[in-house]
Design a protein around this nucleic acid. Structure first.
Lengths: 111, 111
DNA sequence: AACCATACCTAGAACATCTAGGTATAAAGA
DNA sequence: TCTTTATACCTAGATGTTCTAGGTATGGTT
């Protein structure tokens, strides 16, 4: 896909929230899910994800708790909050509106 | 709409390119078009637009030329380049893909 | 003359991402 | 038991960007 940075930035938050809205998850798994959802086109580096997670936590869109993998390795699980769910709805609507605007505008003159 | 900054940023470039792809235009008119297209929900400040135009010009996605309004006031018109058109296609496709991903993901669990 | 709307511009604050490093540990294999 | 690999998390700071808050200029209107 080779996304411009600003699109990566703008899509990261809603994608993360949408994933957590389906089920609690942790850093490495979120990266794996995004990779899967995008057919391998989006491959986030972990160092890019964690600062975003921390920011989302600070904004209280998500919370975290320590858990363990089956093998005993510790993991930090993230859970969406009700504020996060509201934000997800709003972000998703904005994405749809902007996408519609853009597609219509471009469609007019069949680029 | 009350868009987060990163979404404003990510949508500004494709919107501007799409508008110029329909017809050459100038700063104030682009702002007016965006306002119209969004039903008044997106109101860009001019001071926000010009730096973006200059950056797009630097990247050679658009070019500019001086013209005049009917009343004689000078205007800087912008025109999309072929690089800009390619970029517009790519950006529009990326927007559609990301939007599809997001809507599907959210739709699954009817937020 | 004064004011308003149009029209463009820039410096720098503010903010966020993302690179490039780092730590730690379980499992596997030699 | 030692090394390697994969998993798992973290942060400082460079980098890049938007956007605010200023500014200039001018034609039309009162």
């Amino acid at each position: 896909m080779d996304l411009p940075k600003d699109m990566v930035a703008a899509s990261a938050t809603p994608l993360i929230l949408a994933i957590l809205n389906n089920a609690d998850s942790y850093g490495y798994d979120i990266i794996a899910q995004v990779k899967g959802l995008s057919d391998g086109e989006m491959q986030w580096a972990d160092g890019m994800l964690y600062p975003i997670m921390h920011r989302l936590e600070k904004k209280e869109l998500i919370t975290s708790y320590w858990g363990q993998s089956e093998t005993g390795r510790k993991r930090k699980y993230y859970q969406i909050t009700s504020i996060g769910q509201e934000s997800l709805i709003s972000l998703t609507n904005n994405w749809r509106k902007l996408n519609d605007m853009l597609q219509n505008l471009v469609g007019e003159n069949n680029v």
